[in-house]
Simulated assay, not measured.
Amino acid sequence: MKKIEIYDPAMCCSTGVCGPVADPELIRISAVIHNLKKKEVTVSRFNLTSEPDAFVSNTEVRQLLAAEGPEVLPVTFVDGKVVKKQGYPSNEELEQWTGITAAELIAKPRIRLEIKTKKQ
């Protein structure tokens, strides 16, 4: 199975729902990552603000930051190779890399509700 690593720019959270305005791209990538993990794809996501050691310990990320600055982020690796810089992967790119259809990647979770009634 594929191993995906995403190195995010500095931000307060990775969900996109904090701050004054929700970021739809962060919401999308968070949901897609959740679905990838449900399909047993190994996905790691690192935030420059809260996990700077991950950026320092990855030689290629460190070199990209030195050469291109923080504008290079986010950077996505698949199986240890850079596959995308300066933006999050699209659903179609993730489908191509993992073999999981874009429809499965954006599937919303199904919640089953049970309504119990009082017996008289």
Results as ranks from 00 to 15, higher is better:
63 Q>G: 02
118 K>N: 09
72 V>S: 00
10 A>L: 14
60 E>S: 04
51 E>Q: 13
11 M>V: 09
56 V>D: 12
71 E>L: 14
13 C>D: 06
94 L>Y: 03
93 E>Q: 15
32 V>T: 09
54 A>M: 05
45 R>E: 02
71 E>R: 13
3 K>L: 04
94 L>G: 06
55 F>G: 00
35 N>W: 01
80 G>D: 01
96 Q>M: 09
91 N>I: 15
11 M>E: 03
90 S>D: 02
117 T>S: 11
50 S>D: 01
59 T>N: 06
101 T>H: 03
2 K>Y: 12
120 Q>I: 10
19 G>H: 05
10 A>T: 14
74 P>R: 00
81 K>R: 09
109 P>T: 05
65 L>R: 11
21 V>I: 15
94 L>V: 03
43 V>L: 07
93 E>L: 15
52 P>E: 13
26 L>D: 00
78 V>R: 06
104 E>N: 07
2 K>D: 02
12 C>I: 15
68 E>D: 09
25 E>I: 06
95 E>M: 02
3 K>S: 12
28 R>I: 05
100 I>G: 01
79 D>H: 04
30 S>R: 11
63 Q>K: 04
70 P>Q: 15
97 W>G: 11
115 I>T: 14
111 I>T: 13
64 L>V: 05
60 E>F: 01
64 L>C: 07
27 I>F: 06
28 R>P: 08
118 K>C: 14
72 V>A: 08
81 K>L: 04
110 R>P: 00
54 A>C: 00
8 D>G: 01
74 P>V: 01
47 N>H: 02
1 M>K: 08
78 V>K: 11
87 G>C: 13
23 D>C: 13
79 D>M: 09
107 A>R: 09
43 V>E: 02
92 E>N: 15
30 S>N: 10
15 T>I: 01
52 P>S: 14
29 I>R: 06
52 P>N: 06
20 P>Y: 12
120 Q>K: 10
103 A>R: 15
100 I>N: 05
21 V>W: 02
90 S>G: 12
1 M>A: 13
14 S>K: 09
61 V>S: 00
46 F>N: 03
98 T>F: 13
36 L>T: 04
88 Y>A: 08
4 I>W: 00
9 P>K: 11
51 E>L: 03
90 S>H: 08
114 E>M: 13
119 K>E: 14
65 L>H: 12
32 V>I: 11
113 L>K: 09
38 K>S: 05
13 C>P: 10
8 D>P: 07
26 L>W: 08
86 Q>H: 04
65 L>P: 00
114 E>F: 04
8 D>L: 11
116 K>A: 11
59 T>S: 10
102 A>I: 03
65 L>N: 01
29 I>V: 08
110 R>V: 08
117 T>I: 13
16 G>T: 02
79 D>K: 06
5 E>C: 02
112 R>L: 12
17 V>K: 05
92 E>P: 10
8 D>W: 10
25 E>V: 10
7 Y>M: 04
39 K>T: 02
42 T>I: 05
41 V>N: 06
53 D>W: 07
101 T>V: 08
109 P>L: 12
64 L>T: 03
4 I>L: 13
42 T>D: 07
1 M>R: 10
91 N>H: 12
48 L>R: 03
109 P>S: 14
62 R>I: 00
110 R>M: 15
84 K>A: 00
104 E>K: 13
70 P>D: 09
97 W>F: 11
89 P>Q: 00
119 K>T: 15
100 I>D: 07
